[in-house]
Write a protein that binds this DNA or RNA. Sequence first.
DNA 1: TTTTGGCACTCGTGTGTTCAGAGTGCCAAG
DNA 2: CTTGGCACTCTGAACACACGAGTGCCAAAA
Lengths: 344, 344
Amino acid sequence: MAGEVRQLDDRKLAVLRAIVQDYVGTEEPVGSKALVERHNLGVSPATVRNDMAALEEEGYIHQPHTSAGRIPTDKGYRLFVDKLAEIKPMTAPERRAIRHFLDGAVDLDDVVARTVRLLAQLTRQVAVVQYPSLSRSTVRHIELVALAPAKVMLVLITNTGRVEQRLVDCPGTVGETLLADLRARINVRAVGQRLPDVPGLLEELPAMVEQADRPTVTTVLATLFEALAEQNEERIMLAGTANLTRFGHDFPLTIQPVLEALEEQVVLLRLLGETADAGMTVRIGREIAYEGLNSTSVVSVGYGSGDESVAKLGVIGPTRMDYPGTMGAVRAVARYVGQILAES
Amino acid sequence: MAGEVRQLDDRKLAVLRAIVQDYVGTEEPVGSKALVERHNLGVSPATVRNDMAALEEEGYIHQPHTSAGRIPTDKGYRLFVDKLAEIKPMTAPERRAIRHFLDGAVDLDDVVARTVRLLAQLTRQVAVVQYPSLSRSTVRHIELVALAPAKVMLVLITNTGRVEQRLVDCPGTVGETLLADLRARINVRAVGQRLPDVPGLLEELPAMVEQADRPTVTTVLATLFEALAEQNEERIMLAGTANLTRFGHDFPLTIQPVLEALEEQVVLLRLLGETADAGMTVRIGREIAYEGLNSTSVVSVGYGSGDESVAKLGVIGPTRMDYPGTMGAVRAVARYVGQILAES
DNA sequence: TTTTGGCACTCGTGTGTTCAGAGTGCCAAG
DNA sequence: CTTGGCACTCTGAACACACGAGTGCCAAAA
């Protein structure tokens, strides 16, 4: 085959870039004449028309009706994002605003709440932030408290500031000595470890205590493991749904499936879950597995306290979105949230 | 004045009722002819027209344009709700479905989540459920745990299953004896009490410990009081926003302010807060204080584990909603949630 | 006094027509 | 390969027009 992807010369790429930029700006199909007027391409409309024909042939753009301008296709946006666009860095005032906005947060809930609102405001789209998930974070402290002779409260504190507690009904009375011993043994092994690794590190514990205490220890550990494994606890926060009103002109049809998708935590979690661990992920239109979101694009990225990403955040908007700007905002916000988490 | 509210005779009321019912069903202005056809009023269209003129005179209905049918005004809906409508009880299968749907809940979060989804589905509108609020509930247990020499974790467990925890930085080292003493004293006084009453009951505590420990005790208590008072923690859960797409035909204009309002937890909290403690509250259109919701109606009611209402839940929909049905669903769901909470 | 039928009037909606403008594709010349 | 010219297509706005639903009013009937 003479090149499965026919090579597009530079000018054609420039034309595509211009089309994307103009269409994102005006929301209207863009014609050859308007193009040469707004961008100094140094060629005539006729030339641009030829290029457009080629681009359409390759599936990067298409026209709604015969006598209309061109609109980028999903494939066109894809090429734009991959090859033609630079992530737009935030301006200094914007960075200040972000910092200022996030610095006021008092606890983890507040950090997430502020982040999601900020992101929605910055991008003027729908923002989604996943709570720092247990499975990626590490143990800061594990506490055992006797509430009654055979009742123990277990508290798990993670490095992301999350606290989980469980009540444990033990098979027999639990002495304060045993509890203190257990507490010490658990913490010395678990603190600083990633949550999924903890069970493995505590396997040997039952064997280390007196025969009589084993059932108790096993019970406590079982509850702890359960708390550690609790994947259901992956929560998500949403903001900016009002921005959906700026979606398109053909309203209810476009917006309803999106609203429905946004109500399904499961869908959103999977959406964020598919984000690459490193770098930013952009999914465009049909690339999105969930059908209801087929006319949207998702820009998402991981964030975390160290270099490690502990959760994801992102933005959902129309495929016709300002990719460079959105990507810049998403990246910047993720960074700052990471810093905030690291500090606390 | 010869009666500031002119008496409307029975037939006029029947006409109003018919207008409301038809308009809710068809979403289109209803004319005199259509009315006599669908409801057997036993009079001619001309008579109905006279009644309509009277109703319009009194402000219960109005016509969008000269040659159109009539639409109920907020005042008309108000009269309908107050005098003309009976709350529609749930059918047996519906009740079974509600019960079945809510019975699977595993914890408080889950109860609220299921409730709000159920309500949205049942009414096909936007549902709002407030978490059982701290201020109405009572203390089940308060726990103090030493995490470090001068660091104490405070855990507050309420009868509604809610858990709040706080880290306390103490002015000096905290001995285990002091902590145990404090824990016992606090619990003996606070357990079973309503949250707002607790501070008053613990006032005397600092005076009961040794001089040297007073700062510590004061600090711990301050944090506890803060947690108790935390009104911000009044959380809300939302579902059914996709139902907004069935709002009206003049889309973005109607829906945007509503979406914005729904994002403001504060607005929703105030909205629910204004619900009467006993009985169901229906607010219609302009009766709602918040401007963005002026073209909606809110049906809300308190729910709780005992006779006591601990929180509110409700539904937000277009003023043109099926009031009897919505009120029936809201009442039924509130009852069942109350039962579920009482059981757990 | 209330109800009813009749009638003229109003006005929104849907339909068809026209027209201008934007945009294209193609072709032949530069 | 680029460009200007040209014929062609198609949308959307503007306009006219007829239809029909619905009204208000009035005089007669109950």
